Simulated scan of single mutants.
Amino acid sequence: MTASLFAAGLRAVVANLPAMLPAKDDHWRRAWGPIACGLPILGWVVWENGPWVGLIVLFAGMSALRWPVRYLLRGPRAQFRRGV
């Protein structure tokens, strides 16, 4: 296992701990830290292991941040339905 995959796994564990607790703001305040740490780690994983492993790590990170991802995708989805 490469160091980048170990860092991605550690980030996944650390990001999932606060995601299990209830939040009134749909986890936005708790999401900024994992997002800020996850992007460089994702780039590192892609650099060392290739784009396919990077996609797997990206989807794993998105599953931990499910509420922020839903809100970010809500805008483009509404525009697509309107035909804009």
Rank of each mutant, 00 (worst) to 15 (best):
T2N: 15
T2R: 15
S4A: 15
S4F: 05
S4T: 15
S4Q: 15
S4C: 11
S4H: 10
L5P: 11
L5A: 10
F6H: 10
A7N: 05
A8C: 01
G9W: 12
G9V: 12
R11M: 02
R11D: 02
R11V: 01
A12F: 13
A12P: 01
A12G: 12
V13Q: 00
A15D: 05
A15N: 08
A15I: 02
A15R: 13
A15Q: 09
N16L: 11
L17V: 07
P18E: 01
P18T: 04
P18C: 05
A19F: 06
A19K: 02
A19V: 09
A19W: 01
L21Y: 03
L21C: 03
L21W: 12
L21R: 13
P22Y: 04
A23Y: 05
K24M: 01
D25Y: 07
D25G: 10
D26S: 08
D26V: 06
D26I: 03
H27P: 07
H27E: 04
W28T: 10
W28I: 13
R29L: 06
R29W: 02
R29E: 02
R30D: 04
A31E: 04
A31F: 05
W32C: 05
W32N: 01
G33E: 03
P34E: 01
I35L: 15
I35F: 15
A36I: 13
A36N: 07
C37D: 00
L39Q: 05
L39K: 07
P40H: 14
P40L: 13
I41E: 00
I41C: 00
I41L: 00
L42M: 11
L42F: 07
L42S: 08
L42W: 12
G43V: 01
G43C: 01
W44L: 13
W44K: 11
W44G: 10
W47H: 14
E48T: 07
E48F: 00
E48V: 02
N49L: 09
N49S: 15
N49F: 02
G50E: 11
G50C: 14
P51C: 06
W52F: 11
V53L: 14
G54R: 14
G54T: 15
L55P: 13
I56L: 15
V57F: 13
L58K: 08
L58M: 12
F59S: 12
F59R: 12
F59V: 12
F59D: 09
G61H: 10
S63I: 10
A64T: 11
L65G: 04
L65R: 07
L65V: 06
L65H: 11
L65Q: 12
R66F: 03
R66L: 01
W67A: 00
W67Y: 05
W67F: 04
P68K: 05
V69F: 00
Y71Q: 11
Y71K: 10
L72G: 09
L73A: 09
G75E: 02
G75I: 14
P76W: 14
R77K: 14
R77N: 07
R77M: 07
R77Y: 09
A78K: 08
A78Y: 04
A78H: 09
Q79P: 00
Q79E: 03
F80C: 02
R81D: 09
R81G: 04
R81F: 08
R81S: 10
R82P: 02
G83C: 04
G83T: 09
